[in-house]
Nucleic acid binder design. Structure first.
Length: 866
DNA sequence: CTCTCCCTT
């Protein structure tokens, strides 16, 4: 308190001196100018770190955008340029420390470096879409401008590509090359077996060198889809549902909506499985049509709606369209519905397909449906939509040689590293992409590679090792986009993120060990799992394709051709078959779909999953005993949360703590790592994390404390850094909280604050009573319903508690090496009687405190006996 | 005494 007051006084003092200074000036205009300068100085000082953050985000954004368009050298160079700017700017910030920005400029006689214009309004901290997209689209404009030069690097590059693409299935080298013996004594033998054919007949484009607008139109005409325009439009006229099969680079996502608008089909919506894709494709199309983004062409994603009454082409995430069904069940505003990337089979896409099929029947000739997919699953989609015709458009890709291991490898991680070095020693220039299963494995591989390359520096070129996975802080993610220096070779160790979400420039070689981590769900126990499984053939093809984005490439599969053909599944099991569907079931119920067992799913989920969801919704009071949606259920469906959390929010009113519960729900929603734990600073990170749970109350209260502390720091990045908290994740939690706060009005919950941790935990328990468990004599826990043994996850704040709580509620049950409860808090059994008398009998909730319960020591002994 | 594959409302 006192500290705060002093700070405020200090601020006022400063202001006073400044005002005195200003008062000394006679000319009013000078005053204004001076004010402007002062405020600018103030502004610069205050916002420098945040601006750096923005630049970094922008880099990240652009990197994510890259995968949507064909990569050009311009794009890469611009990105590299930005990264260099960012590097210099951060370096400079470090160097000058507290010195005034203006001073340095004077000393050197040069204007100090200024960051690009911020596109975030510093008052509201909201992004200004127009500015933001001016920054984003500048890239395309630059590209067009530079093409007007006599012979650009772009042209040279493309000419080179045309030549190299001519040799389809370029020579396959014997990997057991003679250079290789110099480097190491072990190797992995490969057999060259097949070629993932390229299709690049359209790469040569004719150029007219005048108007940039014309250039854009020329570019559009060069896309493979263009030559099929007439037939495509005719097919759409003739058939209500059409499956468009086109590989990446065919231009289907950007062009088809434009053709439809040019042919006056009416309003078009096009769904994407990812947010960045929806945004960047919309930006691209707005540019091609020469309109302002958000007018005729717009996008709609969570937290951002860039559409208006004028919008005729709307790109959106699939989940967003699903939400639109709630307010407009027949989607009457759209004349054409395009579901893009349907082959990815995301949960939302699958549900959409069922709903859209129904709409198509209901609305008749009034609506057109287009499913856009890669080759896989296309026939299946056609069968689902009553044998809808397929329309095939060739893509644009370079050939990739595929090599299989001669015999299975026992230790694939080791085999990966050996193969990396084999490629490095024997293959021509080009970066390597290795697919691994998770962060742990990536870190192991980094160590392994570092060890193997130690002392080899003089014999081989430098090997730059970069990791990439989703929870890696964004500044470290940026490393994979840095151009490889001449003579060196980059190795990117990636998770599945590199399969679809991020495209890394310069990759020529792919190493595929054939595994990935995959989420699963056991409907009988409600346990989620995250286990390593073999990839499907479709996944393997997708991975191999990553080698052929820039030039002809090679893919090394660390499994035999026999296992590829006989042991691997054809397709990845769609998400709908391996997730908890409670939230989806609630959504469908609120859309008036009563008979879920017979809903038209393209792949019907296990009946147990649906029944479990229905039971849970009944227990929560969202459905009545006839399975009909209740008023409570309708309110819960409005909230973009898991029904258990939605229930907590609705119930929080009773405990006067809706603010606290909303905060906890927002923090729980950003499920992945709020807390950052680098290996070398693990002790410090753990200590910082422990500080949030000092007052007790379990992990949920710790999350609340964490958010509030960050809010009290005025959402500072520095604070995040000091407390090993990920800024990116916290910012997302803030967005979610803001959205929940708006929705409180709609679900008629009053905003109230109550810091009492008992009230907060009771409110949380009113949604999660379903997931309670009780300490056993063994020192382990046993769930009350569907009894089975579970363990507190070691990352939990209650893991090390001296006296283990007798009763716990968990947020999530995940099987990895054991059945772990992630995010737990302790409760009194009497609360369960108070909250869910319909669900528990008093017998189940007998307090056994009179009996002797084990402490931490006893638990360990128990483990030893077993 | 363990890590959290990837997405989305």
């Amino acid at each position: 308190m006192r500290d705060d007051a002093r700070k405020k006084d200090f601020g006022r003092e400063e202001e006073r001196t400044r005002n005195d200074e200003i008062a000394g000036l006679t000319d009013e205009r000078d005053t204004v100018d001076k004010l402007r300068v002062l405020s600018r100085q103030e502004y610069l000082k205050k916002r420098e770190t945040q601006k750096l953050e923005l630049l970094r985000d922008e880099i990240e954004m652009q990197q994510r955008l890259l995968h949507l368009q064909d990569l050009t050298l311009e794009e890469q160079r611009e990105l590299a340029h930005k990264q260099e700017l960012y590097r210099l700017a951060t370096q400079r910030a470090k160097l000058i420390g507290d010195r005034e920005l203006e001073d340095e400029g004077d000393e050197s006689g040069l204007a100090p470096y200024r960051l690009p214009e911020a596109y975030v309004d510093e008052r509201t901290n909201k992004s200004d879409k127009e500015k933001r997209f001016a920054v984003l689209t500048a890239r395309y404009k630059d590209q067009i401008a530079s093409k007007n030069n006599a012979k650009t690097e772009q042209q040279t590059w493309e000419e080179h590509q045309i030549l190299s693409a001519g040799r389809l299935g370029a020579e396959i080298r014997d990997i057991g090359d003679k250079h290789y013996d110099l480097v190491m004594n072990e190797s992995v033998d490969f057999l060259a077996q097949e070629i993932l054919a390229g299709s690049d007949q359209d790469i040569h484009l004719e150029r007219t060198e005048f108007d940039p607008r014309q250039q854009i139109q020329e570019q559009r005409k060069s896309l493979p889809v263009f030559r099929y325009r007439k037939e495509l439009i005719q097919a759409i006229r003739d058939h209500q549902v059409l499956i468009v099969v086109g590989e990446t680079g065919s231009g289907k996502t950007t062009q088809i909506p434009q053709y439809l608008v040019e042919e006056k089909f009416g309003r078009v919506c096009c769904t994407q499985p990812r947010r960045v894709a929806a945004m960047s494709v919309a930006a691209r199309v707005a540019d091609e049509m020469n309109v302002k983004l958000g007018d005729e062409v717009g996008y709609s994603i969570r937290f951002e709606d860039a559409t208006s009454a004028k919008t005729i082409i709307k790109y959106m995430t699939d989940g967003m369209l699903l939400r639109e069904f709630l307010s407009e069940p027949d989607l009457a505003q759209y004349s054409v519905i395009i579901i893009d990337e349907a082959h990815e089979r995301s949960l939302s896409t699958d549900i959409l397909m069922g709903l859209v099929k129904d709409i198509a029947r209901f609305r008749g000739d009034d609506v057109r449906v287009i499913l856009s997919s890669a080759t896989m699953n296309a026939e299946k989609f056609s069968a689902f939509f009553d044998d809808a015709p397929l329309f095939r458009i060739p893509g644009r890709r370079f050939p990739v040689d595929i090599l299989y291991a001669k015999s299975p490898e026992a230790d694939y991680l080791d085999a990966c590293c050996v193969t990396v070095l084999q490629i490095h020693a024997t293959q021509p220039q080009g970066d390597i992409l290795v697919f691994l299963t998770g962060q742990d494995e990536i870190e192991l591989a980094m160590e392994n590679l570092a060890q193997r390359t130690r002392g080899l520096g003089s014999q081989l070129g430098e090997l730059i090792i970069s990791p990439i996975y989703a929870t890696l802080p964004s500044d470290q993610q940026a490393k994979i986009f840095e151009p490889t220096p001449p003579g060196a070779r980059k190795v990117v160790l990636a998770t599945n993120i590199a399969e679809t979400s991020v495209t890394i420039p310069g990759i020529v070689y792919v190493i595929d060990p054939g595994f990935c981590k995959q989420k699963g769900f056991n409907p009988k126990t409600g346990v989620e799992s995250l286990v390593v499984v073999p990839v499907s053939r479709a996944g393997a093809i997708q991975r191999a394709g990553r080698a052929g984005r820039m030039q002809a490439g090679k893919c090394f599969r660390l499994y035999t051709k026999w296992s590829y053909l006989h042991e691997m599944e054809e397709n990845t099991v769609p998400e709908i078959l391996r997730t908890n569907l409670t939230q989806t079931v609630l959504l469908l119920k609120s859309l008036g779909i009563d008979d879920l067992i017979h809903f038209d799913f393209i792949d019907p989920p296990p009946t147990e999953t649906l029944i479990r969801s229905l039971e849970q919704l009944y227990a929560l009071g969202a459905l009545n005993d006839r399975g009909e949606l209740t008023k409570l259920g309708r309110r819960m469906a409005e909230l973009p949360l898991d029904p258990m959390m939605a229930k907590c929010i609705v119930q929080s009113e009773k405990y006067d703590c809706s603010e606290q519960i909303s905060t906890i729900c927002a923090m729980l929603s950003v499920n992945n790592s709020v807390f950052y734990r680098p290996k070398d600073k693990a002790v410090m990170a753990d200590a910082a994390r422990a500080a949030f749970s000092r007052g007790g109350g379990g992990d949920h209260i710790a999350l609340l404390n964490c958010y509030n502390a960050w809010r009290d720091s005025n959402f500072s990045t520095q604070w995040c850094y000091e407390n090993f908290v990920q800024f990116r994740v916290m910012r997302r939690a803030r967005d979610i909280l803001e959205q929940l706060d708006h929705l409180l009005d709609r679900v008629e919950v009053e905003r109230k604050s109550n810091p009492d941790i008992i009230a907060i935990r009771k409110a949380m328990a009113s949604g999660f009573f379903y997931q309670a468990c009780k300490l056993q004599k063994s020192g382990y826990y046993r769930t009350l319903k569907n009894p089975h043994t579970v363990h507190i996850h070691p990352s939990s704040s209650l893991y090390k508690s001296e006296r283990l709580p007798k009763w716990l509620i968990y947020h999530e049950l995940v099987f990895t090496t054991k059945e772990f409860m992630r995010q737990v808090f302790d409760i009194e059994p009497s609360w369960l009687m108070e909250i869910a008398p319909h669900y528990y009998t008093s017998k189940e909730l007998i307090d056994t405190s009179h009996r002797k319960m084990p402490k931490q020591l006893g638990r360990l002994e128990g483990a030893k006996v077993k």
